Amino acid sequence: MNWIFETVFTFLQTDLTLSTGLAIIGLTVLIRLLLLPISFPAIVQGIKQRQQLNKFKPQIDKLKQQYQSDPSLLSQKLMQFYKDNSITFVNKTNLMNMLGQGITGFGMFQFLNSTNLIGKFAWISDIAKSDVLLSVAVALLTGLSMYLMPSAAESVNYLMLIVVSGVCLVSLLNFSSVIGLYWGTSTLVSTIQSFTANLIHSRKILSHG
């Protein structure tokens, strides 16, 4: 897969005369656009799933209270309840989305990490080194993206967001800004997709209300 990324990256940098930083951003956006046919439907399904869970929340809470002393039985009751009401957490669309993003994400990380990319970008004097401001910005954006994820809306809490953002920050401080630019661009695209899907869903609810 490296040769595909390298070919497109070279085209962006040589033929379109983009800087190294812009070429990384451009390549990342192209990849996410190619994944859009599977990633956006997965987000939409997550929103619908959240809507289903909200609808059945009283029944689910009642089961949790009724069988709180027996976690094993509670798990069985919840699984049966989800099955009876056609609530699915894993489906073909979600699996394809996770697989697609996992493969391309790992491939991009390997490509960027194994390629000696240097240059300036915005305030970053050398993208071959880590940048504190970029790392902080991407860490905050990662937390925001996680908060907007429809599948995580019911279970996410501020402590979890802080922990995830903190792990992200520490990780990026140990990688070059090349990885930070990729991570930040990919996360920004995910955030925009989630925001757009939530906005469309909210408007549909208002129009039917």
Results as ranks from 00 to 15, higher is better:
E6L: 15
V8P: 05
F11H: 10
Q13E: 09
Q13N: 12
T14E: 15
L18S: 11
I24H: 01
V29T: 14
S39I: 10
P41H: 08
A42R: 01
N54E: 12
Q59R: 14
D70R: 04
S72E: 13
L74E: 08
M79D: 02
Q80V: 04
Q80Y: 01
Y82L: 01
D84R: 12
T88E: 07
M96Q: 08
N97S: 13
L99K: 07
Q101R: 12
Q101A: 11
I103D: 05
I103R: 06
F106P: 03
F109Y: 15
Q110N: 13
L112E: 02
S114L: 14
T115Y: 03
L117T: 10
G119H: 06
A122H: 02
D126M: 09
I127W: 02
K129F: 12
L133C: 04
A139I: 02
L141W: 02
L141E: 04
L141M: 11
G143V: 05
G143H: 03
M146N: 09
M146F: 07
M146L: 15
L148G: 06
S155N: 10
V156G: 04
N157L: 13
M160Q: 11
V164C: 09
L169E: 01
L172K: 00
L173M: 15
N174W: 14
F175S: 02
S176F: 07
G184M: 02
L188M: 15
H201L: 01
S202G: 08
R203H: 12
K204C: 07
H208L: 12
G209P: 00
